[in-house]
Amino acid sequence: MSEAASTVETPVKVPETLFSEENRTSAFKAKDTLLLIMTFLPVLIGWLAKVLFLKPSEGVEITGAYIFFTIKLPLMDLPITEAQVNSWLVIIAIAFLCLYLTHGIKAGVYTKRAVLAEWAVEKVEDLVRSNMGEYFMGMAPFIAAILGLSAFSSLISLLGLFPPTSDLNIVGGWALLVFILITYYKMKCGPLHYLKSFCEPAPFLAPLNVISEVATPVSMAFRHYANILSGSVISVLLAAALASLSQLLIGWLPGFLGKIPIFRIGIPAILSIYFDLFSGCLQAFVFAMLTMLYVGGAFSLEDYMKKKEKKKAKKVSNTLS
């Protein structure tokens, strides 16, 4: 009791260096600037590619990702699309953002970027701990990667670039990765245990179980892709409708005054708040959450421990005999 009281009374001495952003050499600052430039360079590259390769569209045009070029391969041609390029640009940008946030972090020195990086890591770790349990803490970086990649891929549409998440191939790849993880964790208790899980609750339901197993990644991919795509389609339709509305109302004005699509200014931005900002972030969260739930649900620690103990007992009996 007295100990606790004494610890409260003694004022915590805050060393001057704790919050200082001082003693930074010019080399440090130069590296900092370089990292920041590298973070925003991919966006510039994306704009440049868009300006150089894409033709201006006439009127309302809803098309898939633009194909830059195709690589000839023996089995099947490999098209390099806008979605792939933008996805790689997002990956590079996030990598350099992480490097920037962790550049020059020291234990016990609370600079702005250290607090930001710590906050992000702690949030994701809390999420993983509460949804998957202590055993899966090694999955936290993967979940953070999915969360960041998905969110930034959807948010890139705010900068006028093609969002990679509105292409089924990109999101399908992520869902396939999650499917492999689910199968891996189901296999961890032994292949026999895995095969037995298909025959529950009754053996004749096995085909249905196989279908539901396959439906998991399909529904995950379709959910994310269709959400982002429907947002962009509705935005395009609204922009076209507003253009024709302004044409109808002020088209009689002489000269270039009648050609200004006045209703297109600002009004689509209100929809963009929901479809780009809210929906993009929500879908990233949902994708990461479902990944955690499915992977966490695929593995039961009890069965695994039982199997491990059995193996141990076998080993002991083998060495004894």
């Binding site: 809803i62 379709f222 959910r223 269709a226 959400n227 795509l229 429907s230 969260f285 949902v286 479902l290």
Partner: peptide, 24 residues
Amino acid sequence: MLMGCAVAETTGLYAFVIAFLLLF
């Protein structure tokens, strides 16, 4: 609720994808 809504949306999104493919 947001999580549940996102999951409940799936069937509608399937329909949207089918309609999109049929149109374009």
